[in-house]
């Protein structure tokens, strides 16, 4: 099981959890496992084929897109960070 860190803007979809677990040998398997456990969260980050364009997924600090995409291997002790675009500067 890898730890998946859920950003605050997506926590509602994860039942309020800051971290969830998901398993998979690759990023694809991990996202599919995550989507089956937490469909609402999965829907926001993964369309079933690709990571959504306004979300970045990092495995151990590296963007999976620059590592080679969804087939990048994930280890059991990997930390996966989900990072959607955030706009806030809280001016108002």
């Amino acid at each position: 099981m890898s730890v998946v860190r859920v950003p605050p803007v997506l926590r509602e979809e994860a039942g309020g959890a800051r971290e969830v677990e998901a398993s998979g040998e690759t990023v694809r398997e991990l996202l599919e496992d995550l989507s089956s456990r937490l469909p609402q969260l999965g829907e926001r980050i993964y369309d079933g084929e690709q990571i959504r364009p306004f979300v970045n997924v990092y495995v151990d600090g590296e963007d999976v897109r620059t590592l080679g995409g969804l087939d990048v291997p994930v280890r059991d002790d990997s930390t996966v960070v989900l990072l959607p675009a955030m706009a806030g500067g809280c001016g108002r």
Binding site: V9, P53, P84
Partner: peptide, 16 residues
């Protein structure tokens, strides 16, 4: 982030 998220998926700022 090549493009902004679609409105329905964008986080709401003031409610946050």
């Amino acid at each position: 982030f090549p493009e902004p998220p679609p409105a329905e998926l964008a986080p709401s700022c003031s409610e946050g």
